[in-house]
Design a protein around this nucleic acid. Structure first.
Length: 359
DNA sequence: AAGACGGGGAG
DNA sequence: CTCCCAGTCTT
């Protein structure tokens, strides 16, 4: 035992109470029907930063479309992004796709069961590695996510800032000590399930908790003040003009975003950074940027879209093609009925509502 | 260690 | 509206 936090903590009785509760009370979730490593992998990637209820329909659709790691490896990235559309953090989809190709090429389609090779795959960090190793391969590895840090902070009354990278490492060592001798799959999933159902961020239902008697925060009455977490800084505001550029054939201009950064490789209506360009210079700026002329028409709406680190203020304008099109940049004109075949960020999906149906 | 990277739900 | 949630990669 390398962390004295667990001195005088009854690990084996804790394991029994926790796992008995989990076996009895766990939710019936689609990725719990078997322990196919591919399904465990996909579900764990989807569940990063994302609620179970949101993930369920995406998981069903994804498994129908890409039933095996081979199917995923063979797919076009655009298909994978389309299946991910609306789920957010799209680098997860691109990394999962790349990793599936690597698994097929390097490991003949067999997902590696050792920590080193598994953890080297794109998008598989310490948490996901531990989750796959414990759930699919029954190895005694920690899988420390936000639920686990919250549960253990309270259980052991640990006041370290869970926003710090160092804190996760401490919890990993604690789990290594606590998981010993237990069913690794049940133990890790039980900690996370407890965090989701009982030991919730606000107003935890301690009176229903199967490990209440083990919980140091509950005994001290401080469960509501844990875990300690430093706050994120405020997102900064960015203002854009979004152009719904209609061609004479009832088609609209869309473009693909860059291969790196925010919403990489997704499609969008052209966006003009308003602060830098200014409404007066917009048409000239557009010609310089895209190589053909438009005429700006009326503003037809405005939306705010909030990301973790920034806010988009989107002023939606109609525009018309008014010049020859000899494109400098990559863009296409697409019939309004066909827009839905391209992966768009949620913000631009909502902008599609401003397009009239009867044109 | 700090910042980039989405989107949804609760109150 | 405001607040909360939080894995991995990059720098």
């Amino acid at each position: 035992m390398s962390d004295k936090t667990l001195q005088s903590f009854n690990i084996y009785q804790f394991q029994e109470h926790l796992i008995d509760w989990f076996v009895d009370q766990q939710r019936d979730l689609p990725w719990r029907k078997n322990k196919d490593p591919y399904k465990v992998w996909v579900s764990e990637i989807m569940l990063q930063q994302t609620k179970v209820d949101t993930v369920i329909p995406y998981f069903h659709h994804f498994m129908k479309k890409f039933p095996t790691v081979h199917d995923l490896a063979m797919a076009e990235e655009q298909e994978v992004l389309k299946a991910w559309e609306g789920l957010g953090y799209y680098s997860r989809a691109r990394n999962l796709h790349q990793a599936a190709k690597d698994v097929v090429e390097k490991y003949d389609g067999v997902i590696p069961s050792n920590p080193k090779e598994l953890g080297a795959l794109k998008g598989i960090g310490p948490y996901t590695k531990g989750a796959i190793l414990s759930i699919a391969f029954m190895q005694e590895e920690p899988a420390v996510d936000g639920n686990v840090m919250r549960v253990l902070s309270r259980l052991l009354k640990i006041e370290d800032d869970i926003a710090r990278p160092k804190t996760r490492k401490r919890f990993e060592q604690i789990v290594r000590d606590m998981i010993s001798g237990a069913n690794p799959s049940h133990f890790n999933q039980a900690l996370m399930e407890l965090g989701a159902l009982i030991c919730t961020p606000k107003s935890p239902t301690c009176l229903l908790c199967p490990v209440m008697e083990h919980c140091r925060a509950f005994h001290s009455g401080v469960e509501e003040t844990l875990p300690i977490k430093s706050k994120a800084k405020k997102p900064k505001l960015e203002t854009f003009v979004v152009l719904l550029i209609k061609d004479k054939d009832h088609t609209y201009m869309i473009e693909q975003r860059p291969t790196d950064g925010l919403l990489a490789n997704l499609w969008q209506f052209p966006m003009v950074p308003l602060k830098e360009v200014g409404l007066e210079n917009l048409e000239l700026w557009f010609f310089t940027e895209y190589g053909f002329h438009i005429s700006l028409q009326d503003q037809i709406g405005e939306r705010r879209h909030v990301f973790t680190h920034l806010i988009w203020d989107l002023k939606i304008y109609e525009a018309r093609v008014s010049g020859k099109m000899e494109g400098k940049k990559d863009f296409i004109f697409v019939e309004s009925e066909a827009l839905h075949t391209y992966p768009f960020p949620v913000s631009h999906k909502k902008i599609m509502e401003y397009i009239e149906q009867d044109d």
